[in-house]
Every structure is written in structure tokens, then in C-alpha cells.
Write a protein that binds this DNA or RNA. Structure first.
Lengths: 225, 225
DNA sequence: CCCCCTTTAGGAACATGTTCCGAAAGTAGC
DNA sequence: GCTACTTTCGGAACATGTTCCTAAAGGGGG
């Protein structure tokens, strides 16, 4: 624990930990035991400090997770964006999706107003890219924001639902899927029957995204171009 | 506490509470003090029983919330569905959305595979309506399920994000929205600037839904019709 | 009327996130 | 070296969801 030699002129008891060290330790724990095992007390133990001391460096656990997400998104490298507005939107939205999907615990933090409200500058390029591309396509400012928000909702929903679906512990008695549908009440679902889990398990984010972008752009620009 | 007079021939210690009573008490508490105040111990107190006794009637708190959501959705009256497939999908999806949006705490339970995995028959008509309408429009079974899932993601995302946005307590120092964007890095966001909160606050679920349905149906049926 | 079996009740205890508040460890002025 | 002030630390304590385990309350057979 090489604590820095008193940053000169500083007054008061010297900190024993920094936010950076906390984030590093948190990542270490997550990489090691999975993010479900990340608890305040465990994290404090990893740092060799008291649990409540953490609260002098982070507001609360959600804050910690947002910070971690920030860090993660910030380290992502920014892909080449296609020139066609529609493709650019799809590329940026996919980048958002992939960034979130890779971190299941992001689900605990998502929501709020997402990137825009919580995350720092490092993630904003995705928002900017979508809004800019929508503008290039002819959307007004309001329409462009609408495009972004709609895609954000879709993306968050996809990530959240898929993140929590395997949430069911193996010893959970709750049936993951009802075996039989009442053919009289819900004939189509009954016809699908056993195939539902297989169909619902497929990754169709990109297909849905394309459809959504098509619909949004068609709706936005009215009779022009 | 008029406990039923021993359901005849029953063996073992008589129950002092039923699941129905628990649900009723839970609703009472929610209506009274808001759903954030619904805690296991408070609920038990309301029923005049021990806290752990509840766990003999419900699996866990999430289970309780799902049960309440079931009950709520089941009491909804089923609207007239338009005949045009596209309009029917929009009507059914809107019904899902409104059912969820009315119960902010639904957000805590959503996810999983949503209606299909968790809720009981009373909510399935919405799923059935969407899948059936997609079929009427010419979608294959797989495409119809894709349509439903995509709309489900969008709907869940919208409900979750909007439910948690006012989540910020008033005494929360975390800024709800950064005041200034770096015009060099994110010019479009900077141009929007102050107007973002106003734009993001608008309810655009229906517009987005329409766009999404248009896109999904156009994508699904390929060269036919 | 007593003992066995079944079913439910509920207290003790634990893990977790979090708040409170007094103790600890420095610097600055004297 | 002592006192005052500032900043950080961290234990005690609390609310909550949950699991464990033992006690309570019945019926049935003898």
C-alpha cells in the first residue's frame, strides 16, 4: 500500500484509498468471481478498508456500477461509421447494444435516461452519431431525438430482458415456459407451442433494429426526398 | 380473523392466512403508502402474522409482485381490436404498454420472458393478438414471434427507462442532465443543448410503436402481397 | 385420552446496502 | 510541543429480503 507522500500542502487526514483504486479492485473482483459476488463489504475487504469507508468515495452501489460502466464504454474503440445515414445509425446502435450486452450487470444500472443522463463524454459519441445521422437523413432536431430515444428503449429492453432470462436459477421450480397453451383461447400460441423457447431464444436484435430504423426514418421525413 | 372452519377432512395445522388475503393486503398497502413502502415485514404486520410466514405462501418478493401484476392485468378489460392487422398489433401493444406503465413497480418484475414466461393466461390475449395479427398480415410463425418479441423489448425498455427517470430523489446531487455539451466532440448534442430534457420528456411511445410495426411488417413479408 | 403424523407458524440469524457519529491522522499557527 | 482545524476512517446500528429450524395445531388410530 504505497500511499502517496502527502500531496504537499494538503490538510486533513490523508486518504488511504482513491476512487481509482476502488474501481480497479471492483473490476478485479468482477473478473474473478462474477459480478453477482461484488458486494460492498467484499470490495472493502479486497481493499483492506472498512466497508463504510467506501461511501466516502462513491455515492452508492449504483454509482459504482455507473462508474464501472463508464470506464468500460470509454475503453471501447470507436468503430468506423458507414457514410450512409441509415447504416450509421445501425452501426452506432449496435455499438451501444454490444457494449451493454457484454456487461450483464449493466442491466442493474440502465434505465434512467441512459447514456445521456448518466454516462460521461466517452459514451456520447454513440448518441451523437445517431442524432447526427438522423439529421443527415432529413430529420428535424426533435425527430432525431425521437429516433435516438426509440432505439434506446428497444436496446435497453432487449438487453434487460435477455439478461434476466437466464436469471432463473437451475433449482428454481418456476417453469421457464408453460408447456401447453389453451388452444381455445390462444390458438396461435398453442400452434407454436413447444417451439416458442427456441424462437424466443434467437438473437434477433439486428433484424429488429433494421426494421425499426427503416420505420423511424420513413416516418420522420414525411414527403421529402 | 374469521378463519374458515377447517375445510373438512384436512389434516395438519390450519393455515392462518391464504395467498388471496396476502395479495389483498399487499394491494391495500400499495394503494395506501405507495409501492416503495411495500416490504415483507410491513406486509406481515398488516396481516398480523410473522414475517417469515409469508414465505410459506409466496416464493419470494418477486413472486409476490408477479402475482399482483397478474391480478392487475387480469382485471383489465379487453378492448375491441381493430380488424386491420397492423392496427390490431398497435392496439394490443398499446394495451400491454398501458397496463405496465400504470404500475411503476412492474418495472421491478419485467424482463424475464415477460408475459409469456411469467404471467398467467389473463395476459396472454395480448401476445396472441399480436402473433395472430402478424400471421394475418402474412408473417410466418417465426416472423410473428419476432414481431412480438421486438415490440416487447421496445415496450419494456420504454416502461423501464421512464419509470426510473424520476427515480432520482430531489435531494440527489447527481445532475439529471449535463448542462453543456462539448461542441467540438458532439456538435449536434451541443446544438440541442437545453432542449434535450424537454424533448426526452415527451411521450412518444405510440409514434415509435407505429414506426416499428411498419418496419417489422415491411421486413417480414418479403416480396409477397 | 394419548401418541404419531402432517402441515403451518414464526423466531433467530444472516447477508447486504446504507446512515450516523465519534475517533484518527494530518497541517497550520503559535 | 501544543492547540485548533480539517479531512478521512470505520464501527455500531438499522432496514430489508431470506433461510433454517423448532414449536404449534390439528386429525386419526389405539
Amino acid at each position: 500500500m504505497p500511499r502517496p507522500p502527502a500531496p504537499r500542502g494538503r490538510i486533513g487526514r490523508p486518504p488511504v484509498t482513491s476512487r481509482a483504486q476502488i474501481l480497479a479492485a471492483a473490476r478485479r473482483l468482477i473478473d474473478q468471481d462474477g459480478w453477482e459476488k461484488l458486494t460492498i463489504r467484499r470490495l472493502a475487504a479486497e481493499l483492506g478498508i472498512g466497508a463504510t469507508t467506501l461511501y466516502h468515495h462513491i455515492r452508492d452501489k449504483e454509482d459504482l456500477l455507473v462508474l464501472l460502466l463508464d470506464q468500460h464504454v470509454g475503453q471501447l474503440e470507436r468503430p468506423e461509421l458507414p457514410s450512409a445515414p441509415k447504416d450509421r445509425i445501425i452501426a452506432a446502435a449496435t455499438a451501444m447494444h454490444d457494449a451493454l450486452a457484454a456487461w450483464p450487470w449493466a442491466a442493474e444500472v440502465l434505465s434512467a435516461d441512459g447514456f445521456v443522463g448518466l454516462l460521461d463524454e466517452s459514451a456520447l459519441w454513440m448518441v451523437e452519431a445517431i442524432v447526427a445521422a438522423a439529421g443527415d437523413h432529413g430529420c428535424t432536431q426533435a425527430e432525431a431525438v425521437h429516433v435516438f430515444r426509440s432505439l434506446w428503449y428497444y436496446t435497453v429492453g432487449e438487453v434487460l430482458v435477455r439478461a434476466r432470462s437466464p436469471h432463473r436459477r437451475s433449482d428454481d421450480r418456476r417453469p421457464a415456459h408453460r408447456k401447453t397453451f389453451d388452444a381455445a383461447r390462444v390458438p396461435h400460441l398453442a400452434a407454436i407451442g413447444e417451439q416458442w423457447p427456441a424462437l424466443a431464444g434467437q438473437d434477433t436484435y439486428r433484424d429488429g433494429l433494421r426494421a425499426f430504423v427503416d420505420g423511424l426514418l420513413a416516418q420522420a421525413t414525411g414527403p421529402s426526398t
